[in-house]
Amino acid sequence: MKKTILTLLGLYLTVFTFGQTNTTKLIEISKIYKDFMFRNEPTKQVFKDIKANVPKNLKVGIDFIIQTITTKNQLLTRKFLSRPDDQTLKQIFIINAINLNLNEENRADNNKLIDSLMNANIPMYELVDNYYGMLFTAVGNKNQPFDFSKINFQLKDYKLKDDTEKGIFFLRCMDYCGKTVWGYMNVANPPNTTKAFDNIKKYPTFNGSTYYQYTDFYFMDFEMNIEQGKGKQSYKGYYLNKYYETLLTHLICLNKENGSEKEMKDLLLGSILKERKLYKYTNYKDILEELFKEEK
Rank of each mutant, 00 (worst) to 15 (best):
F169H: 08
M185V: 15
T210D: 12
Y176R: 11
G259A: 06
S271Y: 03
T164Y: 04
T210M: 07
Y243G: 11
D157L: 11
K285N: 13
C173E: 04
K179H: 10
E223C: 02
F206P: 06
G167M: 05
Y214W: 07
Y211P: 00
K179E: 12
T194Q: 12
K201M: 11
Y211N: 01
E290W: 13
K242C: 04
L268P: 08
E245S: 15
I287Q: 14
N199T: 04
I200E: 08
E245Q: 15
K179L: 09
L247M: 07
Q154D: 13
F222L: 06
C253R: 05
K265Q: 14
G229D: 01
K166M: 13
M220A: 15
D163C: 11
D175Q: 12
P204I: 07
F219W: 11
E290T: 15
N152G: 00
K161A: 11
F153I: 10
K201G: 10
N255V: 05
K179Y: 08
N283Q: 14
R276F: 06
Y244L: 05
K277L: 13
L288Q: 09
I200T: 09
I252V: 12
L160H: 07
I252G: 00
A196H: 01
P191W: 03
E263C: 03
Y203T: 01
Y284L: 14
Y279T: 03
V187H: 09
N186P: 02
F153W: 05
K159V: 05
F169S: 08
M220Q: 14
D216T: 14
F222D: 09
G237T: 05
N199D: 11
M224Y: 03
P191D: 01
M220K: 15
P190L: 03
Q213D: 06
D266T: 13
K161C: 00
G167I: 02
Y238A: 10
D221P: 01
P204F: 09
N186Q: 12
L269V: 08
M220H: 14
A196D: 03
F206W: 04
M185I: 15
L240A: 09
D216Q: 15
A196R: 02
N152W: 06
L267F: 05
K159I: 07
F169G: 06
H250R: 10
F170W: 00
S271H: 02
P204A: 01
E165P: 10
Q154T: 12
T282W: 06
K161W: 00
Y235Q: 02
M174V: 00
G231C: 05
G183L: 00
V181R: 08
G178L: 01
G270A: 04
Y244P: 10
I226K: 02
G167P: 04
Y279G: 06
G167H: 04
I151C: 02
M264H: 07
T249W: 11
K277E: 15
G231E: 03
N207E: 10
I272E: 00
S271G: 02
K256A: 06
K262N: 13
Y212H: 10
H250C: 09
Y211C: 01
Q154Y: 11
D157I: 04
P191K: 07
R172K: 13
M185R: 15
L248D: 05
P190A: 01
L240P: 09
K280Y: 10
N152T: 07
M224A: 12
Y281V: 09
G259H: 01
P191E: 04
F206S: 00
L278C: 04
K274V: 09
Y244T: 11
